[in-house]
Design a binder for these strands. Sequence first.
DNA 1: CGCCGCTTTGAAGGCCTTCAATTGATGTGG
DNA 2: CCACATCAATTGAAGGCCTTCAAAGCGGCG
Lengths: 255, 255
Amino acid sequence: MTARMMDIQRIKVACGDCRLSPLCLSSGLNEEEMARLGDLIPRARLLQTEELLYRQGEPLDALYAVRSGSLRTFAGQGNGQEQTLGFSLPGDLVGLDGLEDERHQCSSVALETTTLCELPYARFRALCAEIPSLQGQMLHLIGKEICAEHGTLFLRGNRSAEARVAIFLLDLARRFGVCGLSRQEFNLSMSRHEIADYLGIAGETVSRQLGAFQRRGLIAVQQRNVRILDPVGLDAVAAQDGEAQREGLCNGTAA
Amino acid sequence: MTARMMDIQRIKVACGDCRLSPLCLSSGLNEEEMARLGDLIPRARLLQTEELLYRQGEPLDALYAVRSGSLRTFAGQGNGQEQTLGFSLPGDLVGLDGLEDERHQCSSVALETTTLCELPYARFRALCAEIPSLQGQMLHLIGKEICAEHGTLFLRGNRSAEARVAIFLLDLARRFGVCGLSRQEFNLSMSRHEIADYLGIAGETVSRQLGAFQRRGLIAVQQRNVRILDPVGLDAVAAQDGEAQREGLCNGTAA
DNA sequence: CGCCGCTTTGAAGGCCTTCAATTGATGTGG
DNA sequence: CCACATCAATTGAAGGCCTTCAAAGCGGCG
C-alpha cells in the first residue's frame, strides 16, 4: 500500500469503530444514526505540527472533533501579540468560535501530528435537527467547551503563578485520563511559552514553578515529559489560599 | 389594574413586539414561527436585585434571554471565594453553563431589577429541531457567548490593570450601544469589587485606575455613573504596549 | 561539529496587592 | 429633620510577587 498522506486523509470515518465514540458526538446514537453521522464526515483530516486548522477571519465551513493529537486556539492573527485561549485534546469539539457569525474569530493550530473529524457545518446542523440525540450530544459538547472556558477564566482570576501552573497540570492530567491516556505521566505538546501565554504569566515563571514543584517532589519534569508524583500535594497547591477554592470550577479547568 | 409582581410575571411574551427581537432568538423568524416561540415562553421572569436566577448544581430547566437589566455569573457557590465569570446584558443568552450535563455549573444573580424570557430547555430544543432558522439563531447566540468569553480570556491575559479597566469600559459601552442604550454614558450595575473580581485585579486597583482615567480626562465617573469623554484615547490605553493588540478579539471583549 | 532555538537560571526593578484609615453615600430610627 | 450606623469607595503606604532583561545550559538538526 502506498499509504501516503493523501490516502490517510481520505480514510473513511466510522464512528462505531472509534475509540472516542462514547465521549464524542456519536454517544447515545443507534447504529443507523451513527452511520448517517459517519456519512457526513468526508474524511479524517490530518494536520502536521504547526499546521493551521483554520485562521481568524475565515468562514466557518465545518466544526471539528479531535481524534488524536492536540491543538492550540489563539486570537491575534500573528500580527504581533497572540493570546492563547485554550488547548484542545481528543474528544473536544473545535471551531465553535465561528458560530457567532459563521466566520472564525480565532485561529487554531496543531501542536503535534493531529487527526480530526470534519463536520460540514450546514449538513451537520441539518442532521442535528433530524436526530434529537445528536442535537443533545452537540449541545453537550458545546457545554463542555463553555465550561472549559469558565475553567480557564477561573484559572486566570487573581490566582498566584504557583496555583496556575498546578491547576494547569492537574487539568491536563484529568483530561488525558478522560480520553484514555495516563493521568500520571504525559508529554506536553505545547512549549513553555505557550503554557505561559495561556496561563497569563511569563515563560520564565512557568519554568521556575515547574522547577520548584520538582524540588518539592510534587512532579518530575524532563523536557516536555511530566510525571505527577503527588497529586494530592499538587491539589493543595492548586487550591492555595482557601480550601473551598477549587469548588467553583466547571468540572475542571480548560487547558 | 393591580399591577403587582405576580401579574407582571405572567405577562404574555410576544417576540414580535419585543424591542430586542432583532438581537434575540426570534431574529429571522416569520410571524408564525415567532408565535410558536412566544408560546414556548410561559412568562417574563422578573428578578429583583441580588435575586438568583439559578444556583450552581441545580438542574438545567431552562435557558434565559435577558430582556432588561443585568446579571452576574459566577463560580464558587458562595462557600468562600467566588470568581465572577461574566456579566449578561439585554440580548444575551444565559444558562449555557448547564448544557454540559444539564446541571448548572455556575450561579447567576441579578445586579438590578431584571426581566428575562424563560425558555424551557427540552421544549426549546424540540422547537429548534423544527425551525431551522431558530436553530441558527440559537447557535448564533451560543457563539456570541463563546466569543464573549474569549474576550474575557483575552482581557485577563497578561494585560496591565490599566488596560483591563479600559477594555472593560469600552466593551461595556459597545454592548450598551448594541442593545440601544447610550454608548457614551451609562450606569454600572456592578460594584467595584465585582468589576475587580471579573478583571482579575484588586478592588482598590479599579478605583485607582478609574481615578487616573478621570484625571486624564478620558472619562467622568460619579459613583456608578460613567461618561466616556475620549473613546479614542481610552482605546489607546486599552491597546497599550503594542498597536496590533486589540485585533485578536472576538468582536469585542465580554464584560 | 557547530549553529540555533528553547529552556533554565539569576538579578534588579516595577506594578499591583494588601493592610489600614478616611471619605462619602445610603438608610434607619429617634 | 437630623444623627448615627453601615457599607462601598477612595486614598495612602509598604511590601511582595512576578516581570523584564540578560546570560548560560541544553538539545536538535543541518
